[in-house]
Computed example of a mutant assay.
Amino acid sequence: MKQTRHPEPDEMTLIEVMRALSDPIRVGLVRVLADGRERGWGELRAPVAKSTLSHHLRMLRDAGVTRTRQESTRCFVELRRSDLDTRFPGLLDAVLGAAHGDDVGGQVALASDADDPTG
């Protein structure tokens, strides 16, 4: 099984992290993952094709924003909040605060949230 490479915190660059956070779908994924729980890729709902969602998740992983783990045929993803807060103090909180205020990425949800009509 191929091991996925994740940059160490000192390898993360502001440019790559900001590039990863420059798309509303990716910001939405970060918002969903900000609860600190690891999520299966199948739990994530976004208004894009599965291949495009995979691309967005890869962009976040390659920048160091998320960590991906494969277990058999399933993939799981989690936000690397601690690493991001250590490397870029306050950045993630600022991005999440602005994203919530402007509803950036609000179209991304968990499958359980998307199925719940009460929102």
Rank of each mutant, 00 (worst) to 15 (best):
P9D: 02
E8T: 09
L21E: 02
D10L: 06
F76Y: 12
Q107C: 05
G105T: 06
R80Q: 13
Q3L: 13
L14Y: 12
T66D: 00
V77I: 14
R74I: 04
D115G: 05
R61M: 09
R69K: 11
S51G: 13
P89I: 04
G105E: 07
Q107L: 12
G36M: 07
P24T: 00
T73G: 08
A98Y: 11
V77N: 01
A34N: 10
G90D: 12
Q70K: 13
G119L: 11
R81L: 02
R81I: 03
G28V: 10
Q70S: 11
G119T: 04
F88Y: 10
L79P: 01
L60D: 04
G119Q: 07
T66P: 00
A94T: 15
Q3Y: 11
G28L: 08
L33A: 04
D103I: 08
G105L: 05
A46F: 08
S82Y: 00
V48Q: 03
G36T: 09
L91N: 06
V30A: 08
A98C: 07
L44C: 01
G90F: 11
Q107I: 07
R67G: 07
H100C: 09
T52N: 02
V77M: 01
L110E: 12
T68K: 05
V32K: 00
A98T: 15
L29H: 01
D62I: 04
P89C: 05
V30I: 05
D115I: 12
R74S: 07
R67C: 07
G90P: 02
E78S: 15
L14P: 04
A99E: 12
G28F: 06
P47C: 03
H100Y: 12
V30K: 04
R5G: 04
D85G: 09
F88H: 07
R26F: 03
G40W: 08
